[in-house]
């Protein structure tokens, strides 16, 4: 086994545009679920809308890259309102059902051939980073940067820098909100919304605000993902939602840094497993083929998610008392 490559690839997983995109989406879920108690199982839909909003407005409407990104964010806000207005007055589980269905509808709308001219259908969209000028906005001259596993060309470095900047702003934003009296109301709603209503707070408005803020983070996650890769409908599937849930629960749902660190751990682990499992299969230790071994990691993710929820629902960084599923 080539341990050198395995370790190198694993360490590289610590910092990639994908990790940053997932950290952003997990941060959105932290706002939704960890702090406000809103069960959103449609975070993939928010990411898709962010990504497509960016790509479509550049390719179809000729927006500059930053204009496209703003459209992506506005799209996420509208999606949050669309989901929230009919469901937030209902019991929490309804939101879960509606979000999971809505995310699928969004994905299928982008996938259907009816709008191929705009959405690219199954092929997705590409070339928007060049067309919108995101690539040429790169301040780093061509070359190789960093060292060891963290060696990047200037394009990747630009996406990483941009993504980290966005992530930093979002982390600050969430932190600033959650330490404020607004955050106190949000946590109160998570605990018992009737009690909060009895104290004279407009619970519906607060829940909608929380849904929008988390939705913006999710949309930003989609945009950062799109700034690095192509936009493809095959990405925004329900399993992505569960990867993000795993990242969130891994780090701790009701924490600021938990989702970020959870995403890092998740993708580092993914990188490790996707490297070591095929090697183990090759070496005859695992009785499966190389491709089967690579998919085995998703099975492991599922098992990991279950174990986490059962044995450590508060995550690695959460306070045991602050968030448990069994109340």
């Amino acid at each position: 086994m080539d341990w050198g490559t395995i370790i190198n690839n694993t360490l590289a997983g610590l910092l990639t545009p994908t990790t940053i995109a997932f950290a952003l989406a997990a941060l959105g879920l932290a706002m939704h679920f960890g702090f406000a108690g809103l069960l959103n199982f449609g975070i993939a839909g928010f990411m898709a809308i962010g990504a497509y909003g960016y790509a479509i407005s550049v390719l179809t409407f000729g927006f500059p890259w930053w204009g496209g990104m703003i459209v992506g964010i506005i799209g996420s806000i509208l999606f949050a309102i669309l989901l929230g207005v009919p469901t937030l007055r209902l019991r929490g589980d309804y939101l879960a059902i509606v979000t999971i269905a809505a995310a699928e509808i969004v994905r299928l709308l982008f996938l259907t051939t009816a709008f191929t001219d705009v959405t690219g259908s199954a092929d997705g969209l590409f070339g928007y980073n060049n067309a919108g000028g995101f690539t040429s906005a790169n301040p780093f001259p061509p070359g190789s940067y960093g060292w060891g596993p963290w060696t990047y060309n200037s394009e990747t470095l630009w996406v990483l820098t941009f993504g980290l900047g966005v992530l930093a702003v979002c982390v600050w934003f969430l932190w600033a909100l959650m330490r404020s009296p607004w955050g106190r109301v949000i946590k109160g709603i998570r605990e018992d919304e009737e009690a909060i209503r009895a104290l004279g707070k407009n619970v519906f408005a607060y829940k909608l605000q929380a849904l929008i803020i988390g939705g913006i983070f999710g949309g930003m996650g989609g945009i950062i993902y799109a700034a690095f890769a192509n936009v493809s409908p095959g990405v925004y599937v329900t399993s992505i939602t569960f990867f993000i849930w795993t990242s969130l629960l891994l780090g701790g749902a009701a924490t600021i840094w938990g989702p970020v660190i959870g995403a890092v751990i998740f993708w580092t682990l993914q990188a490790f497993l996707s490297n070591i499992l095929p090697e183990l299969a090759l070496a005859g230790i695992l009785p499966v083929s190389g491709t089967q071994a690579a998919t085995l990691r998703f099975v492991l993710v599922g098992i990991g998610l279950m174990l986490l929820v059962i044995y450590r629902p508060q995550g690695i960084f959460g306070d045991k008392r602050e968030l448990t599923f069994v109340k």
Binding site: A176, L177, S180, P181, W182, G183, R184, V185, K187, G188, R190, E191, D192, A195, I196, L199, G200, K201, Q209, I213, R321, E322, L323, K327
Partner: peptide
């Protein structure tokens, strides 16, 4: 509100809190 501190429970009761508006927060 079980998973809030006793003090936070109390502070939630106060009316007309400036910091409860998302922008001022």
């Amino acid at each position: 509100l079980s998973l809030l501190t006793v003090l936070d429970n109390m502070k939630l009761g106060a009316k007309n809190q400036v910091g409860e508006s998302i922008f001022r927060a």
